[in-house]
Amino acid sequence: MATARTDYGENEHSILYAETSGCCPLCSKSILFRKPGSSRLNKGYEVAHIYPLNPTPSQVTALIGRAAPQAINALENVIALCPSCHTKYDKDFKLDEMDKLRKIKDGFLVEARANATVADYKIQEEVYEPPRILRRLQLLRGWSHEEVSEVFARGTRARRAHGVRAPR
């Protein structure tokens, strides 16, 4: 019995599009297009299953020893591809291509988890620095409101080789 393909909603499509940054991960073509004379952008990608949804007999043979994902239609097993790459991937199935797509998708998932973790933690807007250190850092960073004139050794205001306040 064949597994039914899930009809992904707008939120899922937004996630899949955002993962790829608007480009097919295999050929780098834009996955949105504008019809001539139109100002609207149209979806120019297809949702491809990394592990085949309904493997053919030859794919079943090639996939021996590789476990199918628990949820075959989950977002973790699908990726947005341009139509030509999706067709090529489905028609000319190779384990190398599947592994390549799996690695790309895993990178997307790691990045999404990292972004979610950062969003969970409130990052301090300002780092506290003790007043004495803060004053020194202000001078070093050049954002002090004081007017400081620098005196370089052997400059016009230097009395000796070590500057204005050099020991006598």
Rank of each mutant, 00 (worst) to 15 (best):
S144C: 07
I72W: 14
V148W: 09
A161M: 06
P25C: 15
R34T: 07
R157H: 10
L137M: 10
Q59E: 02
P36R: 01
R159E: 04
I31R: 03
G37Q: 06
R160I: 01
K35T: 11
A71H: 09
A114W: 06
P131N: 11
G155D: 13
G44S: 10
C82I: 06
R141W: 02
K35V: 12
C23E: 10
Y89I: 01
P55T: 10
L32S: 06
A116K: 15
G142A: 08
T87W: 00
R159V: 06
P83G: 08
D90T: 00
V47W: 08
E111G: 13
Q70I: 14
L53I: 11
K105D: 01
K122L: 06
V60W: 11
I50V: 10
E111L: 15
D99G: 01
E111D: 13
D96R: 14
I31T: 05
P36C: 01
A112K: 12
L109Y: 11
L134M: 02
S58F: 03
H145C: 10
R135A: 00
R102V: 00
A161L: 10
C23W: 07
H145Q: 13
L109W: 11
L139V: 00
E125M: 14
S38P: 00
L140G: 05
G142Q: 05
V110C: 04
I64P: 03
K105N: 03
C82L: 05
S28V: 08
V60P: 13
Y45Q: 03
K122C: 04
C82P: 05
E97I: 09
P83V: 02
N73M: 10
I104C: 15
R135Y: 00
F152N: 08
C27Y: 11
D120Y: 02
R132Y: 03
V127H: 11
N54C: 14
F33W: 06
L63D: 00
G22L: 11
L32K: 08
M98D: 01
E150Q: 12
L101A: 12
S30A: 04
G44D: 13
K29I: 03
P130F: 09
I50R: 07
P130K: 13
Y89H: 02
F33S: 05
D92A: 15
P131I: 14
K94T: 15
D120F: 05
G142L: 09
D99W: 02
E150V: 14
V60Y: 12
K91C: 05
H86M: 10
G65Q: 02
R66W: 00
Y51G: 02
I104E: 13
N42F: 13
